[in-house]
Write a protein that binds this DNA or RNA. Structure first.
Lengths: 365, 365
DNA sequence: GCATAATGCTTAAACGCTTAACCTTCATAT
DNA sequence: ATATGAAGGTTAAGCGTTTAAGCATTATGC
């Protein structure tokens, strides 16, 4: 029965007492639900403001059975994209009057379910999950919105990774690239597979694309091992399309270290537009998700589910807010991708050395 | 009065009814507070498990006035370090039985206070703040733990950025570097200032250190502009100590693009050990915070404050858990820092040219 | 002019939990 | 033998909100 923390906070009954009305009336006036006269309503709201009234979420939660809190579970909370997610989700949720409780799954699949359970126990009305690659979210007895990839079963909304891939492929084609290497981590991520699929679709019949799986190489050569990209350049690859900025960064530094100039000698592109993408040299051409939109949709869907549960048998059928499900990605063109220069891409290492001087990709030297 | 969401959840009274005892007894048995016989206690806990009892946080919160939820406000939620923070805080809080509600301040100072207010309104028992540079946290009427830098007023706990700087400076000195450039963003970040101060302290009397402020350069040259680091190399700088991996990355790519080889020609070091620090080429030598420890301390302090408020006049004085306040940082040695090679650092661009693929800014042509 | 309805408000119960206060019963000290 | 106290419960109040139901009072329909 501790009153210290909440000390000075006025509650409904304070307002009621001050105005000589009943608590119920005050509640009605504040929520606009019951029947209250115009003037009394105004007076109450005024008094509320005057007393600095802030509704007690705990009281409300107890009474309504809804906490107005959403859980956010990122499978890989360590992922650099997490901030963007968190920010977008928090914003969208907050706009809708919900708070966001974070859950950590420490990367591991089983822990993911535990994290979800914990959030539910804490009273979350619904959960937003960005699942670990290849995980299927078990049916917990509460609304869930899954953000992953359109090809993930149960997916609610996602960036259109496939089309993003297609666009990225086209971008490279337009620049004249005909032989590229796609860099991915491993094949059990739906997101990556979609992106790769898109790129390949764009290249189908128009160019050659080979695959570099970082995961496999690291399994045999150890984490952080060189990817042998310079050799690929010698073999004629003129562009590297990484499915994540993280891998693109790795590629750029490895190539630069190997004396390959970007974008003069080869182009490198990424995905996600991570925070540093714009400030490295050369700045990274990448494909960006519309997080705000994705978050909005996920939250809207979640809230719709929650409200539907409430309406239950009462209302016949709340109209489902049908959304696109796939949100377009946006190509951010920067310096790391450029036109293929007119030279035999193969074996001409000497010219690479000479010309690479500056990033003036157009220098005919 | 909606029962749908919480549908099947058993409550204390269900257990009480099933066992023919009073609710209070069940509550006591579960919390271990009141007086309950061994056997009854066991029986109750058993029944609770059988019925899948999960305490209602809302009920408890309403009754005790404590929500067991902490707020986390990152000034710059977009910062790449955020995931680490969030993860560590969530873990520490969760261990202590608290949930973590996130608040977004969208970078801006005034929004930071609003975010804090919102969390308080949502009933957070206390707040963890990683403030925006140079912000002072106003006294909200609730426990706060500030994580920033020891030189920030009101700071609760922080990595020992200064000593981290000293260690980094020593590391470079040991490698033979006598002329370095320190790269920072702007001078109103206490964290950066501490790091810089430490590095300079190490170099004091033993070598020369100059400063590069990215913020200033960008103000005149535009965001993402080149920092002119190659020129500094020509002037004799043999190492760049960035106060953040973000800037180190920028330096590495710019140097590599300029044909400077790392670590053969110059060394580059960072701070924070961001996720990609280990996989770029060359992998980045950096200074890492002990987030787990910092989070632990912050949470412990917060909970202590909360409990003290509860104890109020009751107990005379809970012993304050005095903690170090500054948590040591750890040097992660990787490939980007190496010994100064035996050559005149100045003007010997030829050797640089030969070894590195290309050059431009330095090309005498 | 009378049944009916709408309006404006109050009463009271409920949500699930905690906790102070009280009531037995039995063991121990005096 | 009687006061004392501990042990093991129970009762009941309270946290702040919502909401169904009730009750006057005033407006509306015919």
């Amino acid at each position: 029965m501790n009153r210290v923390l909440m000390a000075s906070r006025a509650n409904l009954s304070d307002i009621a007492k001050a105005l000589g009305v009943s608590v119920a009336t005050v509640s009605n006036a504040m929520s606009g639900k019951g029947r209250v006269s115009q003037e009394l309503g105004r007076a109450i709201r005024e008094k509320a403001k005057e007393l600095g009234y802030v509704p007690s979420l705990a009281g409300r939660a107890l009474s309504t059975g809804r906490s107005h809190v959403l859980g956010l579970v990122l499978a890989d909370i360590g992922h650099p994209l997490f901030p963007q997610f968190a920010q977008a989700i928090e914003h969208a949720a907050s706009e809708a009057g919900y708070g966001v409780l974070i859950g950590d799954s420490r990367g591991d699949v089983e822990a993911q379910s535990r994290a979800i359970d914990r959030l539910i126990e804490r009273g979350a009305d619904g959960i937003v999950v960005v699942p670990r690659h290849g995980t299927r979210i078990a049916d917990i007895g509460r609304p869930v919105a899954v953000i992953d990839s359109a090809s993930t079963p149960g997916n609610t909304v996602a960036a259109d990774h496939w089309n993003g891939g297609v666009e990225m492929g086209r971008h490279l084609l337009e620049l004249g690239h005909r032989s590229i290497a796609i860099i991915g981590l491993h094949s059990d991520s739906n997101v990556q597979n979609d992106r790769i699929g898109g790129i390949r679709e764009a290249f189908f019949g128009k160019g050659e694309s080979r695959l570099v799986w970082i995961g496999e190489m690291e399994r045999s050569l150890g984490s952080g091992c060189p990817l042998g990209l310079v050799r690929l350049v010698e073999e004629g690859v003129t562009a590297f399309a990484a499915v994540s900025d993280l891998h693109a960064l790795r590629a750029i530094t490895e190539l630069q270290q190997g004396g390959v100039s970007i974008p003069a000698d080869v182009s490198v592109t990424g995905f996600d537009d991570l925070i540093w993408a714009g400030v490295i040299a050369p700045s990274l051409t990448t494909m960006r998700m519309n997080m705000e939109r994705i978050a909005e949709i996920a939250i809207a869907d979640l809230i719709w589910q929650i409200e539907r549960l409430n309406a239950a048998e009462t209302a016949p059928a709340l109209p489902a807010p049908r959304h696109p499900g796939r949100v377009p990605m946006q190509l951010i063109m920067r310096q790391s991708s450029g036109p293929v220069l007119g030279r035999s891409a193969l074996g001409d290492r000497a010219s690479v050395h000479v010309r690479s001087a500056s990033s003036t990709a157009t220098d005919p030297a």
